[in-house]
């Protein structure tokens, strides 16, 4: 589906929250690479998609009504074979249905298990006065506890993307700390510029979280994504 089709569908269904699969499709269209993610409405399809994508895989509940998927027992990672996928499918469904009996669950998303890298968050929010603003930071505890992030107002110039990455306190961790691989900073800059160009021409979107993005020595990939549309 194209960006417009995804947005129209959400509008038709009167929701502002996009599913992870929809969010990743939109980001892919914007030129931002995401882990391959597909929807399995049944256990059988989860298995066949896992076979297609290749093990290990990750299964996540796909529901716009469940915001914190991990807390709901809706995420299973590093599933190495068909049996593991089948068990995980049932456990996720049971746990989520148990905790959120009223949630509309469209199925389970199957995605390739990205090899771990430096965790980064890239996001966008729309300010009523300044318009879209991008955020960059290190993921996990760095963003949640320390709020070690940098902002720039859209549209970004190349120098803005570079400066916002250089501005965070934890910059050293991106350069390869204690023998870890460094992050591909030019690639992350490019991601920021692509996101800037995309949100600049897509006014319907209110908020985006790409969290985490795994940054590698070469390249980076969006592992989880969330997109919220503006109220109509």
């Amino acid at each position: 589906m194209t960006v417009n089709e995804i947005i129209s569908l959400a509008r038709k269904e009167k929701r502002t929250v996009l599913t992870e699969i929809e969010a990743k499709q939109i980001l892919q269209e914007a030129g931002i690479s995401c882990t391959e993610t597909k929807l399995a409405p049944t256990r059988e399809q989860a298995v066949s998609l896992s076979n297609e994508i290749g093990y290990p895989v990750v299964l996540k509940v796909s529901s716009v009504d469940i915001t914190h998927k991990s807390d709901a027992g809706g995420v299973k990672v590093n599933l190495k074979d068909q049996a593991a996928v089948e068990t995980a499918y049932d456990e996720i469904m049971n746990s989520c249905r148990g905790q959120f009996p009223d949630a509309n669950i469209e199925g389970i998303s199957v995605q390739g298990m990205a090899k771990s890298g430096i965790e980064v968050i890239i996001g966008m929010t729309k300010d009523p006065s300044f318009g879209p603003v991008l955020m960059f930071g290190l993921g996990g505890v760095f963003v949640e506890v320390l709020k070690d992030v940098a902002f720039r107002i859209v549209p970004l110039e190349k120098s803005d993307a570079n400066q916002m990455i250089n501005e965070i306190q934890g910059k050293k961790l991106l350069e390869g700390y204690r023998g870890q691989d460094p992050a591909d900073i030019p690639f992350l800059e490019d991601m920021l510029l692509k996101l800037s160009a995309f949100v600049d021409k897509t006014p319907e979107i209110k908020e985006i979280d790409m969290n985490p993005v795994f940054a590698y020595k070469e390249g980076a990939v969006v592992v989880d994504a969330r997109i919220i549309l503006d109220d109509e």
């Binding site: 996001g123 929010t125 300044f130 603003v133 709020k147 720039r152 107002i153």
Partner: peptide, 18 residues
């Protein structure tokens, strides 16, 4: 806000960014 980004990006931070 429904996103991390939205909850961190206060107006004062955005003005400072500007």
């Amino acid at each position: 806000a429904m996103s991390h980004t939205g909850s961190i990006a206060s107006n004062s931070k955005i003005v400072k960014t500007a």
